[in-house]
């Protein structure tokens, strides 16, 4: 990621519903980072914010053709660069198998 891209990053948790962002980096380390990488939250990947549960936490995200719900504390630690939308990986269908 170049410096100019890094300047416009926001946290995944701040994306509005339906908003998309390209992952720039994960701010956490350890097993939690490993877990998110395994679920497809890899730098360069486009994530679309989806269904927000009634209490506002967790939120479901489309990533690599799957839905995954993240707690706010997790989405707070993922930096994304807002972008216009899916790059083929993210479907527009409804929530299916939130993990």
């Amino acid at each position: 990621m170049s410096a100019s891209e890094a300047e416009q990053t926001v946290l995944l948790s701040s994306l509005p519903r339906g908003g998309a962002g390209r992952i720039v980096r994960l701010l956490m380390g350890g097993p939690e980072r490993r877990r998110l990488l395994d679920l497809g939250f890899v730098p360069g990947t486009i994530v679309v914010s989806g269904f927000v549960s009634p209490l506002g936490d967790p939120t479901a995200y489309h990533v690599r053709g799957s839905m995954t719900s993240l707690r706010r504390s997790q989405a707070d630690q993922i930096e994304v660069e807002p972008c216009s939308g899916a790059d083929g990986g993210a479907p527009s269908g409804g929530p299916k198998d939130a993990a």
């Binding site: 679920l39 497809g40 990533v63 690599r64 053709g65 799957s66 990986g89 299916k96 198998d97």
Partner: peptide
Amino acid sequence: ATTMERNLN
């Protein structure tokens, strides 16, 4: 088959 990318990991 509907979520290949995640599954192929």
